[in-house]
């Protein structure tokens, strides 16, 4: 791998946002294709971060600063990516369900998806199921991720899945759920396509589900 891409990867894993920004800019100046910078320098770094997080070698602060460095690099890289016609791996729409005002778990998931090269539409917190329907029509995501921190909002997660089913979106989008009170049994019970216990696993599970449908890159 190009030495400069390795430097980006190393800086990103350390959470050195200014360094990542400068290195990405330097790579673009040297004519390195933006999709290579993204995949080999940045996405590969976030993949390692995700693995280390799952193995309990690092924790949320380390993921957050790496994701912040990723975003710093993306700010510089995105115009070049758009110009080159590079496509994201898939589009993910995220929301904390109605009456749930918590977002740190969802934000972690968003960072991990962005870090893996997905385009993310984050609808925020306390999102009514009807708004999610409208957003699906507008953004046409491949995956819808629903988050809930409170036991009391689990019924709203169920209601949202039912609403998507009624709208005949089953099969058109993959519905994933997660959050502190969500269990695999609950996810299956409400008819979600996928569940993940943490943000890194969410990206892997989404890739598996997309690959099973013949979409995206596993």
């Amino acid at each position: 791998m190009d030495k400069r891409l390795i430097e980006i990867r190393t800086a990103l894993m350390k959470g050195a946002a200014p360094a990542v920004r400068e290195l990405v800019s330097a790579c673009l100046d040297k004519g390195i294709p933006p999709d290579r910078i993204l995949e080999e320098g940045m996405v590969s770094a976030m993949a390692i971060i995700g693995e280390r997080f799952k193995r309990d070698e690092i924790y949320m602060p380390e993921v957050m600063i790496a994701a912040r460095a990723m975003n710093a690099g993306l700010e510089v890289l995105e115009p070049a990516l758009v110009q080159s016609g590079a496509k994201p791996r898939g589009k993910v729409l995220l929301a904390s369900v109605r009456a749930d005002l918590h977002d740190i778990g969802k934000n972690m998931v968003a960072m991990m998806f962005r870090g893996a090269g997905y385009s993310v539409v984050d609808l925020g917190v306390d999102v009514h199921e009807d708004l999610i329907l409208e957003a699906i029509a507008e953004h046409e995501p491949d995956v819808v991720g629903l988050s809930s921190l409170l036991t009391t909002t689990l019924p709203n997660m169920k209601k949202t899945v039912e609403t998507l089913e009624k709208a005949d979106l089953r099969g058109r989008v993959i519905i994933m759920v997660g959050g502190a009170p969500v269990t695999p049994e609950f996810a299956e019970g409400i008819g979600a396509d996928g569940y993940a216990p943490d943000s890194a696993s969410a990206v892997e599970r989404a890739a598996e589900l997309l690959a099973a449908r013949g979409q995206g890159l596993a």
Partner: peptide
């Protein structure tokens, strides 16, 4: 802490 993990190391 949260499910399965502590917030910090």
């Amino acid at each position: 802490a949260y499910k399965g993990k502590t917030f910090v190391s």
